[in-house]
């Protein structure tokens, strides 16, 4: 059991490393280097740049050394908490990301919760009452959820809200809280605004999970242990929840590892449509204006967030499946 957890942990570290390389590649890919761009920007805003200052920066980022040295230097800077400066916003990258990262997390987590809260009962119902009218309706809705990409769903809902209710349903805060400091009122306001993005982000995932849950449960319902349980005289409701659902939950939980990256991915683009003050719009701007330190850092943070989410779901899976605990994984 511990070995499993350690293995997962090492894999998570490895993934974070891979993401850091990718983030570095993203920073490096555009033509020109950061220091030249930074100095040009300083010069254009009338700051006198001494050659020594420029040389210092070059040294700091190892621009004259091979790429892998540059990567190590970048990592070194990061380990000191220096993520570089945003060229466009003329501020340390970390300050730019701040709140937006937490809001991204809040949106993504609520989407995950919504996905589960929707997929679990519907999946169970659809399997237990296979071929009922409700099963067909849910299957149909599931397919729609699968076929409408989240950003299109967001666009359509925005249009409906705007057109028929005259309300802008985007954003995460009411106007009066937008610039206010954090307070219980603001948190409550946030909670009130979370459901819509959560639903939009969660639809596709929920549709997929419903199908997985339904298929798994249908398989499990045919297994002999269900008949055993029935022969004990258990009530059908208790029986289904205790045995087959419990078994079908495993593959369900293991999808959580993929659900999380999927939702974070989706949140980037949905945030743009719904103009959420999350990290998505910032990333897009940074990429469009080639503000690469900002962009690279955001990719890095999003990656780390995902890896942590995946790791937690792995641990959850271990806790839920005795076979993993006994190292009997196929």
């Amino acid at each position: 059991m511990l070995a499993y957890a350690i293995r997962r942990f090492l894999l998570a570290l490895l993934t974070i490393w891979a993401i850091s390389v990718l983030a570095f590649a993203i920073i490096q890919l555009p033509p020109g280097d950061y220091v030249t761009a930074y100095i040009a920007q300083l010069a254009s805003s009338g700051v006198d740049v001494t050659p020594e200052f420029a040389e210092n920066l070059r040294q700091q980022y190892g621009l004259d050394s091979p790429v892998w040295v540059q990567y190590l230097k970048w990592m070194e800077q990061i380990s000191r908490g220096n993520f570089g400066r945003s060229l466009e916003w003329r501020a340390p990258v970390l300050d730019m990301i701040g709140d937006r990262l937490w809001l991204t997390m809040a949106v993504s987590l609520s989407a995950v919760l919504f996905t589960w809260a929707l997929a679990l009962p519907i999946g169970i119902y659809s399997a237990v009452r296979q071929y009922s009218i409700a099963d067909y309706i849910f299957t149909f809705i599931g397919f729609i959820g699968l076929a409408v990409p989240s950003f299109l769903l967001a666009l359509i809902l925005m249009y409906v809200g705007f057109r028929y209710f005259g309300a802008n349903i985007g954003g995460l805060f009411s106007p009066e809280y937008q610039l206010a400091d954090w307070s219980p009122g603001k948190v409550w306001d946030l909670i009130k605004h979370l459901p819509l993005p959560a639903i939009i982000l969660g639809m596709a995932g929920a549709a997929q999970l419903i199908r997985i849950m339904r298929a798994n449960l249908l398989d499990e319902l045919r297994k002999p242990y269900v008949i055993t349980a029935r022969a004990k005289g258990m009530s059908e409701f208790r029986l289904i929840l205790k045995y087959p659902v419990r078994a079908a939950l495993n593959p369900f939980v293991s999808t959580l590892g993929y659900l999380f990256p999927f939702i974070i991915s989706g949140s980037i683009i949905v945030a743009l449509v719904l103009s959420l003050p999350t990290i998505g719009p910032l990333l897009l701007r940074a990429l469009v204006s080639q503000d690469m330190f900002l962009a690279g850092t955001i990719v890095l943070f999003l990656g780390i967030m995902t890896v942590i989410g995946t790791f937690i779901s792995d641990i959850l899976l271990m806790w839920i499946d005795p076979r993993i605990r006994f190292e009997r994984r196929e």
Binding site: Y225, I227, R230, A231, K232, G233, S235, Y243, R246
Partner: peptide, 23 residues
């Protein structure tokens, strides 16, 4: 339900799959 498992009990062919592996 009171009779199932109470007055009439059943033993199955497949001892492998007749128990849930989760408990």
């Amino acid at each position: 339900r009171a009779i199932r498992g109470g007055e009439i009990a059943l033993v199955f062919q497949e001892p492998m799959t007749s128990f849930s592996p989760h408990y």
